[in-house]
Amino acid sequence: MAVEMELQPKMPKCWNLATKPHKFCPGCGHGLILKALGQAIDDLGIQDRVVFGCDIGCSLLAWDFFNMDTVQAHHGRATPVMVGLKRANPELIVIAYMGDGGGYAIGSQHLVNAANRNDKITMILANNTNYAMTGGQMAPTTMPGQKTETTPYGRDVKEDGYPMLGPEMVAAITHEGTYVARGTVSKLLTLKSYLKKALENQISGRGFSFVEVLSTCPTNWRTNAEQTWAFLEQTMQEFFPVGELKVPPEAAAPTAPPGAVEGEGE
């Protein structure tokens, strides 16, 4: 425990210390995403104004992760709960946090319509190519040929289609004021800068913000550390290009410190 504290000396201020170490599996990407998010929130100094909505799936484990107002929703429904909150009190900064199943399958209508209405909310979606909490079934984002509990012989694109390109879809259907990006847990500083822009975009009232984050799930992938990283860095990124897809002109200023070096685990 003491050793881990030394290895992670900069725990974001908005984290809930009482619930650390967190409940995610070893090697899970959620902790990294929430670290980048925590840092972005600290930088912006908005802890007291944020309402963090978590979906059901592994993201539900984040319900007491932050020392911030948090609401657990249902599978796929963090988005409408946060939309409802924001509409009722536009001064709040709302974050809908979910996985790929919650955002792209059962809650896809909420994603599409919140984007289409340009709701002033921030959606963060962890893409780990499977339904992890339920034991590793195929998700809309499962890679071609990837074995899951419901595609034991590998995802056959003739039967099940190709992985869903969420940010590309959101970028295609939205208009001015929307921020869309895809980050990865392997580049935490860049991810943090995306998350920060996504929050700033909401705070400034410009519009809908959506960040997909490529994440890891060694438990269900059944991979060791090296294989996990290779899957994230190569297999996934070949299909899911990382970068900003849509940036309102006013939000284009860089928020990552210039010349910052990206490193593994930051």
């Binding site: 309402v51 609401v71 929703a73 249902h74 429904r77 409408p80 709960v81 946060m82 939309v83 409802g84 909150l85 924001k86 509409r87 009722a88």
Partner: peptide, 8 residues
Amino acid sequence: FTTIGGVL
């Protein structure tokens, strides 16, 4: 669910 958000 949005109504729930409004009440929250």
